[in-house]
Amino acid sequence: MSMQGPIATHRQATGIPTGRLAVWWLLASEIFIFGGLVLCFVLFKLNGTPGFEDASLTSVAAGAINTFVLLTSSLTVVLAHAAIEEGNVEKSFKYIWYTVGFGFVFLGIKTYEYTGKIIHGHIITENLFWSFYYTMTGLHALHVIGGMIIMAIISFDIKKGYNFQRVELIGIYWHFVDLVWIFLFPLLYIANF
């Protein structure tokens, strides 16, 4: 394994490489961001706030396809990690770009959804449901875009023969992005309880 790069990537005090520990810290803070939004959504819904019946207007098919896309992208990124552990840079590079491709598909479907909703007048200020919908899915989409950019950078790094450990780190982040969507899907698309 390559040992080049910042010292934080190959020293440790907890038995966990510092880079990986940092990613887990980042995810712990992300739990507050998305968890806070999800809990507030649930509170307002349980309180019977008007507008939440609009959940029936979201497209279950689009949400389900996007869940499929993200679950599959999670598979490709973990296969990229497995490949780099075997020292197979080409295979890892290929799987990273499959993941980036799935990210584009996800964003494409999301854009299609947004366009349809906005054309029908469902904008962020319409009511509390749409405020939550655009805030949560928009913030999630920003995380997808961020992950794609970082993955693209890492893919070229490993081609040059360094920072192999970052494939695992971006993988952990990407799985979290998938995990958030696993909760957003039932909340915003399928559960009109």
């Binding site: 966990i16 520990l21 887990w24 739990i31 968890g35 679950l71 799985h175 998938d178």
Partner: peptide, 27 residues
């Protein structure tokens, strides 16, 4: 399933579990 297998959480040390548990408790 994603966290345990894809994120390798089931192979992680206790400190990571505690870190995540702390986040969820504060939530």
């Amino acid at each position: 399933m994603v966290a345990a297998n894809f994120m390798h959480l089931k192979f992680e040390k206790k400190i990571i579990w505690l870190l995540l548990l702390m986040s969820i408790c504060l939530l």
